[in-house]
Design a protein around this nucleic acid. Structure first.
Lengths: 135, 135
DNA sequence: ATGGGGCTTCCCATCATGGGAAGGTCAAGG
DNA sequence: CCTTGACCTTCCCATGATGGGAAGCCCCAT
């Protein structure tokens, strides 16, 4: 299995497969005599694992830890769960941040009449968030 | 006003002030004979505008457009509002993505007993999201 | 006049990904 | 058998926003 086929089969681009190999996230596959990478079923499995972890928002370093837990057949499920819960907490923090931004902007946009006139509370807020009038 | 004082006054680090200047986001300030940057009230105002826009999640390029709208006294508030609404939409998209991740992870974590045993639905999902059992 | 803190520029690192060049390889069809 | 086009290899560069740090100059207070 070539890198292109592995990319199609795993959903990870060939570029990223090489990158993951270069940083030691995945094992270097075997090579043909001419140097082409050759992937087996197990490699594709790992690549899909990585793909899925990334899709769930884990960083590459976190994915590395998850891979280690996955390969460690004697891990405690409590460790995995704690890892997941920590990540959920980080996701929730980020969500709250974005919601704060969206809420503020919605409020400003709501107060902006949105017509041909130049007066705009959105720009006014950006220029002076505290609403300190400069007389 | 030195760059350090401008940083304190605006909440933008000296490093970033120089960077914003280098990419043409803010006007180069005047300099002392010895080359020190000297900031005036108007500069601080712009820096705070940038800071606020960034805090609301606008990219630097978007901030550049907002600055242009701000300086253009004849802009239509409709343009600003459309800009804000577009950004709100992007924020909401990102929020929905993160919520999807968090929801999935919460579901998986909920089904993980989290004890000393190695069995873990979280890792099982990462390894095989579709739940295709490999016999 | 000296010491310490602030300023200058310049380069490097991050994180994850993609683009592209230069060159080697493989398979299919003439 | 040779050509052609699609694939592979490595290597370098770019992104976006920010920080770290080095080398060297400057300014002010003691």
């Amino acid at each position: 299995m070539n890198i292109g086929e592995a990319a199609t089969a795993s959903g990870v681009s060939a570029k990223m497969i090489r990158y993951y190999e270069s940083i030691g996230l995945i094992q270097p596959p075997s090579r043909t005599e001419s140097g082409y990478r050759v992937y087996a079923g197990e490699d594709i499995h790992s690549l899909r694992f990585v793909k899925r972890a990334r899709a769930l928002g884990f960083s590459i370093e976190e994915t590395r830890e998850l891979l280690a837990l996955w390969r460690d057949k004697s891990r405690a499920s409590a460790d995995v769960k704690a890892f997941a819960l920590k990540h959920i907490g980080e996701l929730e923090t980020k969500i709250a941040e974005l919601q704060g931004m969206a809420r503020t902007l919605r409020h400003l946009a709501h107060n902006c009449h949105g017509d041909d006139r130049p007066d705009c509370p959105i720009l006014e807020d950006l220029a002076d968030p505290a609403g300190v009038k400069c007389h």
